[in-house]
Write a protein that binds this DNA or RNA. Structure first.
Lengths: 205, 205
DNA sequence: TTTTGATAATTTTGTTTAAATAGTCAGTAA
DNA sequence: TTACTGACTATTTAAACAAAATTATCAAAA
């Protein structure tokens, strides 16, 4: 898979870590390549030896975080006791992910309009993983007869994920945004759990 | 209430109509006060005799539209056969409202970040009307025993409205936005009806 | 192969100017 | 006194440019 040497991979990781810390604390645009380099006592030029440009570096960090998130989700949704528990796990894992990395995502707020395609691919990958895992959960529960039969589990999951996501975009509160404000995250989280509760009941007999 | 003469009110209305047409076809920033004035064969200065400034004129039109929307909603939700029908009405009326006035709202897209407080007040008024009417509907249905007892109808309506609104902000599709794109409105509309269907079932025995 | 200092290229920020548009006002007409 | 206007001023927008900050490259050294 990876074509470089072990040494190279180790250094690459170190750069990713340093970049992550900077991006997390100061955001994308307030982080300079020089700062990342000097955090590691390296020359800036070396960063360009390992990564083609700044945005690719950011994306590489993003990809790593997404991978961890996905692993997390898969191991947790590998088995579950009931449908609600499965969805609750998804909601919680995502909540923690957002809370932990909140400032890292300032890149999203800044570039709101046109995120690079690569970022969208990562978002899509996450979304598809969620779709696959949760659709499977619905299918299993439907087969067990724990909920009503479902024609198209994917459609239901898609709808629910949209609805859950929508809870963070309250139409009324001042200062809109694609991305929720940090202070609201916990409120959003509990609203989601309530929505899930009603939604799941709607799927049951 | 209104302090001007009838004549004044009539002219005011004419200005509002002309402004509405311009804003609807060309959007806020591509409409000049001169254009509105000459549509009516009046001097621009007269517009300032009736309205303090351009944004107040826009807001006055907005207020009028909101008033019509609210009247619409109230007369429709005055009585209903069952809970689902009530919510379907709300969804449909809002859908039509958005479709009809789509371009008028370009002001919202442009000023995305900081809409004037007055606009937020109008949005809030609409939201509160929806809350009151739909909460009442839930209360009535709960008392009739058609759905499970509900502690706090307002909370449920708020949640559902958020979720419905969220359907228009698909997290995955490229090109985010606070405001949905015109081509997606019908797809959003049917997703909402599906979400409503499941949600209502979740409220039933 | 990995690393760097020096340098080039690009982006961002700030400044100036001109044009377009918003907004004011003294005065006229009904 | 109320409704209205032409001529004026003030403000906003946009384009063009320069300076500063930052990204990105590259020839050469370790």
């Amino acid at each position: 898979m990876s074509s470089g040497s072990d040494q190279q991979d180790i250094k690459r990781e170190k750069i990713l870590d340093a970049a992550y810390q900077r991006f997390l604390h100061y955001g994308y645009s307030k982080t300079t390549m020089n700062e990342i380099a000097s955090d590691l006592s390296l020359s800036k030029a070396l960063l360009y030896y390992y990564f083609p440009d700044k945005s690719q570096l950011y994306i590489a960090v993003m990809r790593k975080l997404a991978g961890e998130y996905i692993d997390n989700l898969q191991s947790r949704l590998n088995k579950f006791d009931n449908l609600k528990e499965a969805f609750v796990s998804q909601i919680n894992i995502k909540h923690d992910f957002i809370v932990k990395n909140y400032n890292f995502f300032d890149f999203f707020r800044v570039n709101e309009q046109n995120l690079p395609d690569t970022i969208w691919e990562i978002i899509t990958e996450i979304h598809q993983t969620e779709m696959v895992l949760l659709s499977a959960a619905i299918k299993i529960e439907a087969e067990k007869g724990n909920i009503k039969p479902v024609d198209n589990p994917g459609e239901i999951v898609d709808l629910l994920l949209d609805a859950l996501h929508g809870v963070s975009v309250s139409a009324v509160s001042h200062k809109k945004v694609m991305f929720p404000q940090k202070e609201h995250l916990d409120e959003i989280h509990s609203k989601r759990l309530l929505l899930l509760d009603i939604f799941i009941k709607g799927l049951m007999y």
